[in-house]
Nucleic acid binder design. Structure first.
Length: 113
RNA sequence: AGAGUAGCACAUAUGGUCGCGCCCACAUCAUGGGUGAGGAAAGUCCGGGCUCCAUCGGGCAGGGUGCCGGAUAACGUCCGGUCGAGGCGACUCGCAGGCCAGUGCAACAGAAAAGAAACCGCCGGCUUUGCCGGUAAGGGUGGAAUGGCGGUGUAAGAGACCACCGCUCUUGUGGUAACAUAAGAGGCUGUGUAAACCCCACUCGGAGCAAGACAAAACAGAAGACCAUGCAGCGGCCCGUUGCGUCUUCGGGUAUGUCGCGUUUUGCACGCUUCGUGCAAAGGAGCUGUACGGUAACGUACAGUCAAGAUAGAUGACCAUUUAAAACAGAACCCGGCUUAUCGUGCUGCUCAUCAA
RNA sequence: UGGGGUAUCGCCAAACGGUAAGGCAACGGACUCUGACUCCGUCAUUCUCAAGGUUCGAAUCCUUGUACCCCAG
């Protein structure tokens, strides 16, 4: 069961104190939390597209995180921001972008990479 | 077969694996079953339900609509008709009341743009190289110039007079009406603009589910009764109405949560009993179908049915099949419309022209 | 989700239905040995966010759309 980051304050705290990496399609903020379960927050700006486009990107990111959750180190809060270029990308492109960023953050299990 | 015109329907399939929201089954977990976006869900341009404001009342101001009749809960929507414009036609489009209630505006050009007018021209006269008078037929300007064409007439002209057309009025006939049509009369009565102010007719209180209701940490006030004037408040203003002072009483209320919220209410039965399920009845501008009435919009009756309900927000991913799996696009209180976006299909009515029979 | 507003030159902006002001910037010239300051001139080019309509005539009036901004937890 994937926990999600909901409150605006929590987003702001992670933006302030977390580290960030970015690639062509996504931006990822990450911060170690006090619990031993991981949490995911997704942000898609209105500039990316209309409601259908934004929902689809959020679903693709959530699906990708869900299928790879076991590979992530536990106890990290992760925020993923979709960029404008992510509009119209396929699942596989989003998935590889997400794993690439996780690798930069060094929060992936080395065995599974 | 071609060109066109009007309308209707569908609009991401089927199977497999993994996953999400809600509901149900079991005390819970696990598990199983059911169910899960649109024709526009969009824009928010109108109308209504619902909720609160103040019990929603009266007047003024302001807004909206605008050929006629009907439909509807209501509408700026829809249906039928009239008139005007376009098309050979099927048919389409039209904010289509009133500038003889009043007021305003009409740049530039033009002599003159609205209770007045002679620039050129034409005709007559004279004290003849110019002035006076007559004249709106002709020229020129303009979007618009005193109804149009022909004739009579005249010095030249003029609805001054005549025929036809147009206009206005009256009467008759048809139509619920808009209006159509016939006859007669007037004798022409100065243009455009009301998506200019305005007039006339009808109509509208304001805000919106982040409305609002309930529970309730923090925090200290809150409610009721009585009384007089001023002040303050209440959606533009006024009438009107509420609070501020004194006394009495004890709850008020922010964060937050729940409800509102997806068929609702009542009764009975059952269960694991502040809930849920089943059955029955009533309600719903609910949905589907049939019949009847109506040209139609729509109405009435009967039968069946209850269909997503999230709350940082559920519908997704991959594989296979097929030529391909796609356009525009995602419910957020709920309905009726309008407008705008849109891949690819299917069906029906009608029109025109050609060919064949 | 609901409510409200704005759009005119590169920027800031004005404008009664009748030729789209002005300032800054830019460009050209004058002044200067050179630069700044100052002075003179040019700059909306078929057109006021876009498309229709009303009107003789539209930035202005009407309808529909687009983009951006603000408010309400």
């Amino acid at each position: 069961m994937t926990n999600s980051i909901k409150k605006n304050e929590e987003f702001q705290r992670i933006y302030q104190s977390g580290r960030s990496y970015a690639n062509k399609y996504l931006v990822m903020y990450a911060k170690k939390n006090e619990s031993d379960t991981g949490r995911l927050g997704i942000s898609v700006s209105k500039k990316v597209g209309n409601s259908v486009v934004r929902h689809r990107l959020a679903r693709l990111i959530r699906e990708s995180y869900r299928l790879n959750e076991s590979k992530f180190h536990s106890g990290w809060d992760i925020i993923v921001i979709a960029r404008q270029s992510a509009k119209g990308r396929t699942y596989f492109e989003i998935n590889s972008a997400l794993l690439h960023l996780a690798k930069l953050h060094k929060i992936l299990d080395e065995v599974s990479v």
